Each structure stands twice: as structure tokens, then as C-alpha cells.
Amino acid sequence: MATRARRPERREEPLTRERIVEAAVELLDTAGERGLTFRALAERLATGPGAIYWHVTGKNELLNAATDAVVADTVGSYAAATTPREAIHALALGVFDAIDAHPWIGTQITRTPSQTPMLGVFEHLGRQVRALGVPHAAHFTAASALLSYILGVGGQNAANARGVEPGTNRTEFLDAAATTWEDLDPDEYAFTRSVAGQLREHDDRAEFLAGLDLFLTGITALREPTDPAVPS
């Protein structure tokens, strides 16, 4: 009787913390925080929940690690900047785009203000605030205001994107919203009606940077004056 040839065993990629975090980010992107369970993660990784617990103690640690992984890539995005303002622009846009791509991190960052992900962004913003020549007494206020603006606008932009009806593109959505503004009562909403056209045509990232520059203009106004050159 002919013997049946044995099929070679497929070598599986070893389970590591990095693989687990990468899979968690993918699951969060598709299913949100509620969809991130160790059962779902185990199915995605073709392993058992116990093997995951060997690397991660629980869901909170996993959420922090996933957020840290996304933010770490963002923080490195401003390395090529040549001035403090350019560095803040690059870092802010990095966080803005990261929240747009991974809406769950906006909530997660603000939920853990004393932990690594938000501290990393705050630290790098603070260094650039200091490089702008802002007095030490205003460092905390300036960096905190910038961080609140970045996270707030980034989170709102992501929420707006999720609120668009399926099958409706951004242009159609903004056109409908602008039309609604134009139809408002002219006495009660005089200002809102006057900027309806700007709502229809605006670019989210450009508006985000324009608002950031308003903050930076105020912050740089606090700059400590330099001593005038002493005449020779």
C-alpha cells in the first residue's frame, strides 16, 4: 500500500508584543474600542487569549500600547523641521492626520493625560514653545493651549467625518451644510450666513493650520525681548 506523504508543517510567525499591538491597531480601526476584545484579537492572530496575556496584562495596557505606537510615529514626523514654528506645524499635522486615520486615539489620549502617549506630544510641543523664547512662567499655559487645540480640532474633524451619511462625499456634505446656513434667519444669524460660502469651500487641514497660527501669534507675542545691541 502506498504511503501517504506528510505535508510539511507551516512555520508560524512567532507571537510578539509588537505583533499583538499592530493587530490591536487594525482591530481598533475597523471595529472601534468596543470591538477590541481578547477573543477577537486571538482570532485575528490565530492564537489563544492566554498567549496574548503572556505579553499584555489587560485591555487598558493594550489600548495604551496601541495609542503609543501610533503617536510615536507622529512625534518623529517633525524631525526635519528647521524652525520651532515649522516643528509645531509638522507635529500638529501629524497628530491631526493620525486622529483622522485612527479616530479612537483622540479619546484614548485625553483619557490618560499622565501616561506616555499624551506626555510625548506635550513634551515635544513644550520644547518648541521654549525654543520660541516664551518666558518660563508661560510655558505650561502655552503648551497646554496648543495641545488642547490640536486634540480638540483633530477629534472634531474625525467625528465630522464619521457623521457623514454613507454614500455622501465631503463636497456634497459641505454644500448641504452651507446651504442650510444660507437659509437661516438673516437677523438672528447674520454672521453665520456671511461665512456660509467659506464653509462650502474650506479645506480642513488648511483651516487647522490657520487656527494653529492664531495661537502661535499670541504665544510668540509673549517672547522675552532681547537686549539691544550695545554700540561700540
Score class of each variant (00 low, 15 high):
2 A>M: 01
3 T>C: 01
4 R>K: 09
4 R>D: 05
6 R>V: 14
8 P>W: 01
11 R>K: 12
14 P>N: 03
15 L>K: 07
16 T>W: 06
18 E>I: 03
19 R>K: 13
21 V>T: 09
23 A>D: 08
24 A>H: 05
26 E>Q: 14
28 L>N: 03
31 A>P: 04
33 E>G: 01
35 G>S: 09
38 F>T: 03
39 R>K: 11
41 L>P: 05
42 A>Y: 07
43 E>K: 13
43 E>R: 14
44 R>I: 02
53 Y>V: 06
53 Y>P: 05
56 V>R: 10
58 G>F: 00
60 N>G: 06
61 E>R: 12
65 A>R: 12
65 A>I: 02
66 A>W: 03
74 T>Q: 10
77 S>R: 15
77 S>C: 15
77 S>N: 10
78 Y>P: 00
85 R>L: 04
86 E>K: 07
87 A>L: 12
87 A>T: 12
89 H>A: 05
92 A>E: 10
94 G>S: 05
96 F>C: 07
96 F>G: 05
97 D>Y: 00
105 I>G: 07
105 I>R: 08
105 I>L: 11
105 I>M: 10
105 I>T: 10
107 T>H: 10
107 T>S: 10
108 Q>A: 14
109 I>Q: 11
111 R>D: 13
112 T>S: 12
112 T>V: 10
113 P>C: 12
113 P>L: 13
114 S>A: 14
117 P>Y: 08
117 P>F: 08
118 M>P: 00
120 G>V: 00
120 G>L: 13
122 F>E: 12
124 H>W: 07
125 L>E: 07
126 G>W: 06
127 R>F: 09
128 Q>G: 02
128 Q>N: 15
131 A>E: 13
131 A>L: 11
131 A>Y: 01
131 A>I: 01
134 V>G: 03
134 V>F: 02
134 V>P: 01
135 P>D: 05
136 H>Q: 15
138 A>Y: 09
140 F>P: 00
141 T>E: 15
146 L>C: 11
146 L>P: 09
147 L>P: 07
147 L>Q: 14
147 L>C: 13
148 S>D: 13
150 I>S: 06
158 A>I: 02
160 N>W: 00
163 G>K: 05
165 E>T: 12
168 T>E: 14
169 N>Y: 06
171 T>S: 09
172 E>P: 01
172 E>M: 11
173 F>Y: 15
175 D>Y: 06
179 T>D: 12
181 W>L: 15
181 W>A: 13
186 P>N: 01
189 Y>W: 08
191 F>N: 05
194 S>R: 11
194 S>I: 02
198 Q>F: 02
201 E>N: 07
202 H>C: 08
207 E>A: 11
216 L>N: 06
218 G>H: 10
228 P>K: 04
232 S>A: 15
